[in-house]
Design a protein around this nucleic acid. Sequence first.
DNA 1: ATCATTTTGAGAGAGCTTATCAATTTCAAT
DNA 2: ATTGAAATTGATAAGCTCTCTCAAAATGAT
Lengths: 144, 144
Amino acid sequence: MANTHVKEMQALKEHLGKHQLKLTRQRELILSAFLRQEHITAEAMYHQLAKSDPHLGLATIYRTLNLFCDAGLAQARHFGSQTKYDNVSHKGHHDHLICTGCEKIVEFENEEIERLQEEVATKNGFTINTHRLELYGLCSRCRH
Amino acid sequence: MANTHVKEMQALKEHLGKHQLKLTRQRELILSAFLRQEHITAEAMYHQLAKSDPHLGLATIYRTLNLFCDAGLAQARHFGSQTKYDNVSHKGHHDHLICTGCEKIVEFENEEIERLQEEVATKNGFTINTHRLELYGLCSRCRH
DNA sequence: ATCATTTTGAGAGAGCTTATCAATTTCAAT
DNA sequence: ATTGAAATTGATAAGCTCTCTCAAAATGAT
């Protein structure tokens, strides 16, 4: 953990405090590992963390990642049949370009698109809370 | 079926021909019902079609809707844990505004957004095949 | 240190979708 | 029209991802 993810740790503690939840060894461990990722599945974290803690349960990973979502540190995203958890704490919102050839994921942000989305929403009487934009195609390497 | 969905029927037959697949009573029935929907789940079609054909299997619905996706008549979209199949044949591509209050779905199109998406993709060396844009929020009725 | 409360781990269970396979249907070739 | 190889169907089992259950363990306010 060291002193790298202090801010996120602080945000987590704040959330825990507000909801009568406790800070556990597992939650610290999972947070620390999660913050090193861009987006990851619970299953992937399970295998990854099995090295440092072979007895960490899969259910705990799921519970904890969902907790991070509640705390605003993570954001769940459904990709096909799986859920990926995005690290959203220090990077802010971003959308995805997904290569259907090699599964590579590129993140991007575009203010103009965001603005137009607001416009569409307003025109239809909606107030947007979140959105999701995914572009599927082939990256330069897979296109030939 | 009558003469309403002739074009889609034609498109389906073309796909079947190209892939050594056969036209069955079930496929005709499911296509006809599907084209009357905007977006629907396999489960919902199953119950809806049980009236006209009580022995139609759920697996057949899934298989057939996936077939429609291959044929370009439908498009699958994952909403939480469920998959909804969109009728995309005669309406062209469209995106969605989704009310998290009442589950209402409003379709929209925005050329400018599409254009910007292409721009982002090109900038990253991608060629887009499809995309998906979903805006989540509250509709005017649910907001108060 | 105590103890009420929360959390964990392991496995059972739930929800959605796909695989299996014998019986049936389709359709191209007689 | 009949035949027969190949595809499709229906019923159900199986698979996958995720959540629930609950006894045992850990947390943290006192």
